[in-house]
């Protein structure tokens, strides 16, 4: 099968997809009688009863649908493992700039950005944000250093892999602990605290902490692999 046929095929599939989607949208606009309003109310009610988390989105993501989050974290792990597998022979940095101003700026900004990421992670149950977002923000601090220092900056790949793996294992262990000590996965084995304070939500905060650490390590590894990839 050559490239031309593959392309033609993908065009065909795209056309099919777009037409089905347009039909679907036109159809749904007329046919839907959404029951969604009631769901939000029920959800907020359950949330206030069972989790003591001010940001209801967080309790959906980490607690009600904790298994989905675990699945998403492992999807991320899998895709980054794939990238690492096929790009692992890094030779030189793509951005070889030696700009003193940029280097100093990166030095000043690095701790600030990491701090901001940590803030976003730890306040995930109070305000918008959480493990995924904060993790990516921390990783962006590392990207800045890659850009500024070129070949002279190599974070220990071993440390990154280790922190990634251990935080993932911590996440799964939290689930297993919930199964063993409580009655279901991610069961609340810690005290809930009062809604709105930093130490509320029990397990939920720990889940986001692990997710944040994992995402930060993974995204850093990913960008390192991309930036330092050998000539493809």
């Amino acid at each position: 099968m050559n490239l031309k046929r593959t392309l033609a095929l993908s065009h065909l599939l795209t056309g099919l997809l777009v037409s089905v989607m347009i039909i679907a949208l036109l159809g749904t606009l007329r046919l839907l009688t959404p029951p969604i309003d009631t769901i939000g109310e029920t959800l907020l009610h359950i949330n206030a009863q069972s989790t003591q988390v001010a940001n209801a989105v967080t309790s959906v993501v980490t607690y009600f649908r904790g298994l989905d989050t675990l699945g998403e974290v492992s999807i991320l792990f899998l895709s980054i493992f794939g990238v690492a597998l096929h790009m692992q022979h890094s030779t030189r940095n793509l951005f070889g700039a030696h700009d003193t101003l940029l280097q100093i700026g990166a030095q000043v900004l690095f701790p600030l950005i990491v701090l901001f990421g940590v803030y976003i992670i730890t306040h995930g149950h109070l305000s918008p944000g959480g493990g995924f977002q904060g993790g990516v923000i921390i990783a962006s601090a590392f990207v800045l250093r890659f850009l500024a220092y070129g070949d002279h900056y190599e974070p220990s790949a071993r440390l990154l892999t280790l922190s990634e793996s251990l935080s993932g294992a911590g996440l799964v262990l939290l689930g297993v602990l919930g199964l063993l000590l409580g009655d279901r996965i991610f069961a609340q084995i810690l005290s809930l605290g009062t809604m709105g304070t930093l130490l509320s939500g029990g397990v939920i905060e720990l889940v986001y902490l692990f997710v944040g650490l994992k995402v930060a390590a993974e995204m850093t590894l990913l960008s390192q692999h991309f930036i330092k990839a050998r000539d493809v």
Partner: peptide
């Protein structure tokens, strides 16, 4: 015995890989 072990155990084995 929980059904979730069929998902959790392999994931745990995977994440503990560096050990």
């Amino acid at each position: 015995m929980s059904l979730l072990y069929f998902v959790l155990l392999p994931l745990l084995a995977l994440f503990l890989m560096p050990l």
